[in-house]
């Protein structure tokens, strides 16, 4: 089927099987460099995207569901102030994700702090577990998200 949707703010169309995984299409048809797929069952968080404004594991999204929707990958944040906030937040924490999880952890952080620059701890603790790469500790990632949120608040004067 021909699937038209918005990817990182641009209209795209792709011929894909309706049951194809969004992650697979992003990787192989649309050559999104940041996209990875690992567990293929929505557990590992390698393939996180922002789909219709919500963060989700794209390996579990069939292409028939993508028709007419909006998808954002980390490439959609390149050059943005939002990404700079996160970079500063990570840097001030000394948080350095590995090259395999840098994109999903950054995108997850963006999703969390864009929705609420003061995320509730309870909610944060659940959401931050969405990426299960073991290069850093979870507590360290939580601290990095909190600092990224602080950067965002300070830029948007939500102090």
């Amino acid at each position: 089927m021909r699937v038209r949707f918005t990817l990182n703010g641009k209209a795209v169309q792709v011929d894909a099987e309706p049951e194809a995984r969004l992650s697979d299409v992003l990787m192989h048809h649309l050559e999104i460099a940041s996209m990875r797929q690992d567990c293929s069952e929505g557990r590992c968080g390698s393939c996180l995207v922002i789909f219709e404004g919500i963060i989700v594991s794209s390996c579990m999204i069939p292409m028939f569901r993508v028709l007419g929707t909006e998808v954002v990958t980390i490439e959609g944040l390149f050059g943005s102030r939002d990404l700079r906030d996160i970079e500063r937040g990570f840097q001030s924490t000394g948080f350095e994700p590995c090259r395999y999880c840098a994109a999903p952890k950054t995108l997850l952080t963006h999703a969390i702090i864009s929705e609420n620059t003061r995320p509730r701890e309870e909610e944060l603790e659940v959401q931050a577990q969405a990426v299960r790469c073991r290069c850093t500790s979870y507590q360290h990632f939580l601290e990095a998200i909190r600092n990224a949120a602080k950067q965002r608040r300070s830029r948007t004067r939500d102090i």
């Binding site: 460099a33 390149f78 990404l83 996160i86 840097q91």
Partner: peptide, 19 residues
């Protein structure tokens, strides 16, 4: 340290995605 943005733009060839 390597800036996050350079890590995110890493274009290292990956066998999993190469075509």
């Amino acid at each position: 340290s390597r800036p996050l943005r350079s890590l995110l733009r890493d274009k290292t060839l990956n066998p999993r995605t190469i075509r």
